[in-house]
């Protein structure tokens, strides 16, 4: 049985469909990430599970029990708020102990549990501080401690890393993943950062305009995107439009049949996975690899690699690809995009 299950969830704000028939399930102790741009409905989904959004349709089950109409305080799902929502008039200790006190646990046990949480999250010595005296990263961990200390059935994380500096964010990503595995609490993780989601989630749901477009493991989402939106949303991409005729798209050496009757097709290329060689070089390619010939127009130095603007034969738009080899502008090059690193829709 799924730990947490949403069946045909619907929520409308006037004409906007924040949740348009959304179904999902969390199994075991997995970390399920919901990604999508802002306005995709991912936060509404999270808040409806916490009970702060009243659904217009559908049912939510927690360990098989229907919690759809349960008050937020009776759900035992702990939510982490994007802006932390720490109580400024309480100390760190009081913030973390709040949920335990409500559970009528004796003082000694509360103290032990709070101390465990403080140690678990590396907050030793900060128990008597007020939230305003903490750094952003410390506040984030206090908010996390407050949520996990009550041993919730499910942990709901709303953009937990978005208020942190970019460098700290990368480090905390690993910590968060390790922490979730150590605790074994099933977790729903909402973020707009696809890279973050791919790197820490066991499974990923991609949402757009209130609908689930695709769900699967990070690898499945990345390697087999079902449509243009998903392909574009995950990964670093360059997209060009090419003409289509009678359901046939021809780009470079590849001809692909597409189902729609569209006049143009989009080619999504993973910008980091393109191999650039001299146009005359004799490189062996596999069946299915996309080979494009073009001229380097411009380049940007990015540190570990260069970002190239390439003018490709028969394509009207410039292609932006990354490669570590230094190639001078004006040079004619051959670009080899392996199968699975480009998608035509």
């Amino acid at each position: 049985m799924a730990v947490l299950e949403g069946v045909n969830l619907k929520k409308y704000y006037g004409k906007v469909h924040a949740l348009d028939d959304v179904s999902f399930a969390i199994e075991g102790n997995e970390l399920l990430a919901v990604i999508g741009p802002s306005g995709s409905g991912k936060t509404t989904l999270l808040r409806s599970i916490a009970g702060f959004v009243k659904l217009d349709g559908g049912r939510i089950f927690l360990h098989g029990e229907d919690i759809t109409d349960l008050a937020p305080e009776k759900r035992n799902v702990a939510m982490f708020f994007q802006n932390y929502a720490l109580w400024p008039h309480m100390t760190v200790f009081e913030n973390i102990a709040y949920g335990l006190k409500l559970r009528k646990i004796d003082k000694k046990t509360i103290k032990e549990k709070v101390e465990w949480a403080l140690e678990f999250l590396g907050l030793e010595g900060l128990a008597d501080r007020k939230p305003s005296q903490l750094s952003g990263g410390q506040q984030q961990r206090v908010a996390l401690a407050r949520a996990i200390v009550v041993e919730p059935k499910v942990l709901l994380l709303d953009e937990p890393l978005s208020n942190l500096d970019a460098k700290i964010r990368l480090r905390i990503r690993f910590e968060l993943k390790a922490l979730q595995q150590k605790l074994g609490i099933p977790t729903l993780y909402v973020t707009h950062d696809q890279e973050e989601a791919l790197s820490i989630a066991d499974r990923v749901i991609v949402m757009h305009e209130g609908k689930i477009l695709q769900s699967g493991t990070p690898e499945e989402i990345y390697r087999n995107p079902r449509n243009l939106f998903v392909a574009d949303f995950v990964g670093m991409n360059t997209i060009v439009k090419v003409p289509a005729e009678n359901g046939l798209v021809k780009v470079g050496n590849i001809t692909k049949r597409i189902e729609n009757e569209q006049k143009t097709a989009s080619v999504v290329i993973r910008a980091d996975e393109v191999n650039i060689v001299d146009a005359t070089a004799d490189v062996s390619t596999k069946e299915g690899d996309l080979v494009l010939i073009g001229v380097i127009k411009d380049r940007l130095y990015l540190g570990s690699k260069y970002r190239y603007e390439v003018e490709v034969e028969d394509i009207n738009e410039p292609l932006f690809v990354n490669h570590e080899v230094d190639v001078a502008p004006g040079k004619k090059v051959k670009m080899i995009v392996p199968e699975g690193s480009y998608f035509i829709f």
Binding site: A50, G51, F52, P72, E73, K74, R75, N76, V77, A78, M79, F81, N83, A85, L86, W87, Y98, G99, L102, R103, R146, A147, V150
Partner: peptide, 17 residues
């Protein structure tokens, strides 16, 4: 901020609490 109240509610506090 209403989130401060929701955070308490989420941890099991009744409206009055």
């Amino acid at each position: 901020p209403v989130e401060l109240e929701q955070a308490a509610q989420n941890l099991g506090a009744s409206r009055l609490k």
